[in-house]
Every structure is written in C-alpha cells, then in structure tokens.
Amino acid sequence: MTLQAKQWLYAVLCIGFLAMSLSVYMSTENVDRGFSLMSEDVRAGKQLFQDYNCTSCHQIFGLGGYMGPDLTNCMSSERGPKYAEVMLRYGAIPRMPNLGLTDQEIKELLAFLMYIDKSGTSPPVDFEINSIGTIDIKHYQDDE
C-alpha cells in the first residue's frame, strides 16, 4: 500500500465517521418521545442525578454501578414512587446514604425517575430472540 493510498483510506474513514456521527446526532427514532416528556423538574432532576453521582451505584438501561438496583423502571415497579421517595429521603443505610435532600430536590429527582421510566424498559421483559442472534425488544406499551 502506497503512502498516498494510506492517506486516502484515512481520509475516507474520517469522512465516513463524520457522516455517521451526524446521522447519529440527527437520528429521531424514539428521540421525540424524550423531548415531549422533558420539563424543568426533569431537567433539574437529571442534573441532581449527576451532582450526587447516582450512576456510581445505580444503572439506567444497564449502564452504571452495581451497588444498588437498576432505576430505569423503578417508578412503575411493584414498590413504585412511594418507595423511591422514602429511599431518597432517608437512604437505606449502609448501601444507600442519606443524602440530606430537600423536598424540592426529592420532587425533581422523582420527576427525572418518572421520565426515565417512560423512556424505555430495562432489563427487558418483553422481547423476542431471532434465529440469527438478534433481539427485538418491546420498549413501549404503545409499540406496534
């Protein structure tokens, strides 16, 4: 392979990468659902989730730490919002610290958790495994 060929290949890959990145940024599948559910409380709750580094112990869509449970669908689970509120208010020593959250902060974090709950399902409960090893996951109740 000549130097020029290497340079061309490098350039083609870079252009391909930029094109793919733009496609990812502009992809709309299930994205509008997120925008329509976003509110000021949710936005504030999302920032609090980062400020308290909740990801250290909890997962969203399976991404995050394993000290605590996956929170993606905690609001629609059997225990529901009341349990989540108690956890946020008092903690669950020793695993979950009492973060000393204000009422407003608890409200915002609950709003964020509710938002996440409506954004999809994790871990999947309604799925189909195809013969080639791929999976179809039903994330929303209103999916066709």
């Binding site: 990145s21 990812v24 940024y25 994205v31 659902r33 997120g34 925008f35 976003m38 936005r43 869509f61």
Partner: peptide, 24 residues
C-alpha cells in the same frame, strides 16, 4: 469533546439521544 454534548439541550433533553451519544 463529544462526550460533553449533553450540555447542549438538543442532546441532553432527550434521554435516548443523550445516552446514544454518550456511549458513542
């Protein structure tokens, strides 16, 4: 720099796009 796109509402305000770009 891409991993900080969440700071722009176009990315950060929809969790699906946000997490997709984050893990990209």
């Amino acid at each position: 720099l891409e991993s900080y796109l969440w700071m722009i509402p176009y990315f950060g305000d929809s969790i699906v796009r946000d997490m997709t770009v984050q893990w990209k």
